[in-house]
Design a protein around this nucleic acid. Sequence first.
DNA 1: AAATATTTTAACGTATACATAGATGTATTT
DNA 2: AAATACATCTATGTATACGTTAAAATATTT
Lengths: 223, 223
Amino acid sequence: MKSVKSISRTDEAYARLKDDIRANCLAPGHLEPEPELAARLGMSRTPVHEALIRLEAEGLVEIVPRRGARVLPISADDMREIYEILTALEPEAAACLAARQPSEKEIDPLDQATQDMTDALDKGDLDRWVEADDRFHQTLLRLHGNKRLAAFVGALFDQSHRARMVTLRLREPPIISTAEHRIILEFLRRGDAEGTREAFRKHRQRTSVELISILEDYRLPHL
Amino acid sequence: MKSVKSISRTDEAYARLKDDIRANCLAPGHLEPEPELAARLGMSRTPVHEALIRLEAEGLVEIVPRRGARVLPISADDMREIYEILTALEPEAAACLAARQPSEKEIDPLDQATQDMTDALDKGDLDRWVEADDRFHQTLLRLHGNKRLAAFVGALFDQSHRARMVTLRLREPPIISTAEHRIILEFLRRGDAEGTREAFRKHRQRTSVELISILEDYRLPHL
DNA sequence: AAATATTTTAACGTATACATAGATGTATTT
DNA sequence: AAATACATCTATGTATACGTTAAAATATTT
């Protein structure tokens, strides 16, 4: 049975704009007046404006009075901010999850995600790799159960998505990252909270350094 | 010179509603239709609706289709979520700040805040105590410099404000808390990152346990 | 020609209008 | 009297209208 819950125009505008931003269809820095956006989306200004307020709250756009909405660019400093937070939050959540010894059934989607990462890596499909990577992290937080934490980390993932996609293509395939996920999963299975925390922290610190140095080495100030 | 930057109606509605929620003038769970809110605030529905979208994004209200806006109640579980995040983030940020050896001039507002806490405690002025406590935490994060982190922690403070105010009045005066801030400040001054982190973590863990057990002992499921 | 003043344009903020759909209240039936 | 069906009411979602004001374009002056 299909869930036809008559999506509102505001939700539609929100979803489409967010997708366009993530997919880099709307370039970072791009400024577009509301009437244009409304025309492009085939609706009036009202739902577009409401969607923009939500996107602004999530840190994806900036509403510039009398100019329109700007797609917020991401700088190396932004990535430092984002990864500092992820490094503090995710290992803690993972350790907490490990401590309560999740069942194999709960762990299964994480297992699936790591397999998909390996698979995508073999086939050189980086888009699918990132999708599986995201899925791993989001699933882990969902299992942990702290909704506020999951939502916030999700917003940070959205903000950094474009930059991650670009840098991923400027470096060697993410073999180490994939392996680290498998290690984290193994500690989780064993219910080893400390091991999980440290493995996750190491993973985040490494990816953080790697990502930011690419941004700086390639002189990519804004993505 | 007065900064008369002609505040927008949306901003006005946002600020007034947020203040009313923080001050418990709008009871938790309270549901009010937009037209009523608009009439009360002396403006049309549009800016009220836009303010509500922002407040919803910040986790203070929930927009219920065809019913109006509900002031979100805070449960013991919500407080667990919030304090888990604060415990992970704040000690990390404080340690990082300590590591870069802030100047005495930078530290001064923190010093001021702890003095104000001591002062308020002596005079039994709990409102002022909470204000100074909030100021300490927000100032520390501002000094640390991670804007996303500061904004998110600020939102969590707003969400938990009512519950903190109530529980504060159901227990002994916050002598230990006040002292702990002084200790954290001392480690900061010395540039002792590890000491700062541990002192802060201990502070958060203690306040967390204290607060949540009051909520549960007094059977206060929602505030 | 460059700089300034003026006019024109247009985007936003806000109010209002209206259709829809859910909630409330009333009447009817059993 | 309780339950159900019907009618009314009302809040929302969305479109549209309009005044204000910033930006852009044009004209004017130096």
